[in-house]
């Protein structure tokens, strides 16, 4: 009897999980790629994961998340120091193009807006002497808009804190405002679920920033 119950239980688990896979291969594929994204370090690894997200995106043409993560992967590639400015811009432009498409699938999305700001911030960081003045207001405007769209988006808050911090340093003014934003973002990160396929990146960077604040 015990055995039957066990078999039955196993059976149920097998059935439900395989049914879940049949019903939602999308989430399964996304989760697999998110694990790879978390561990990616090199251009090759990020490119491979970006390719995977793009493959998912072309199949699931109504989902914004694959486009979002492909863009996020490309932005990460663009930070690689071995690239020339033109090459970096190629990746950032690609990210912006993907995010533009994502926006048509999901309007008023705080995550997309914040990532668009992150792409602008990355472009700025690629050549701060030439681009600082023109791009910093653009990045801040996008982070501001992302916070407006969702005040509980820790990424929008953390990225804005980054910009505020740089600005405060530039003007030689206090970093209190930037630091309190960073702290608030850490709090929001702590309450964020990292189970699903929604964005959850950035917690460690935000924590690191708060240590700088002390």
């Amino acid at each position: 009897m015990k055995k039957t119950v066990l078999t039955f239980a196993i059976l149920i688990i097998v059935v439900t999980s395989s049914i879940a896979e049949i019903i939602n291969p999308y989430e399964k594929a996304m989760k697999a790629q998110l694990a790879l994204l978390d561990s990616a370090q090199t251009i090759q690894e990020y490119q491979a994961v970006a390719n995977s997200f793009e493959r998912i995106a072309q199949k699931e043409s109504n989902e914004w998340l694959p486009l979002y993560y492909a863009a996020y992967s490309y932005i990460n590639i663009g930070f690689d120091k071995s690239l020339t400015l033109d090459q970096k811009d190629t990746y950032f432009n690609k990210a912006e193009e993907l995010l533009k498409k994502a926006e048509t699938l999901s309007a008023n999305n705080s995550e997309i807006t914040a990532l668009r700001g992150y792409a602008v911030m990355a472009k700025l960081a690629a050549d701060p002497a030439s681009r600082g003045q023109s791009l910093s207001p653009v990045a801040m405007q996008l982070f501001g808009k992302a916070i407006q769209q969702n005040g509980k988006n820790p990424r929008a808050l953390y990225l804005m804190a980054q910009m505020e911090y740089g600005m405060a340093q530039f003007f030689g003014s206090g970093t209190e405002k930037a630091c309190s934003m960073a702290k608030k973002s850490v709090f929001l990160y702590e309450n964020e679920s990292i189970e699903g396929i929604n964005p959850y990146w950035g917690a460690e960077m935000a924590k690191e920033m708060t240590t700088k604040c002390k």
Binding site: P25, A29, I43, Q44, Q47, A48, N51, S52, E54, R55, I56, Q58, K59
Partner: peptide, 19 residues
């Protein structure tokens, strides 16, 4: 060309080219 996205349209099936 490394890192090229190779896939069958409208499916998840595909890969990236190696080095």
């Amino acid at each position: 060309l490394p890192g090229v996205n190779v896939f069958i349209e409208d499916t998840y099936d595909g890969t990236s080219s190696d080095g």
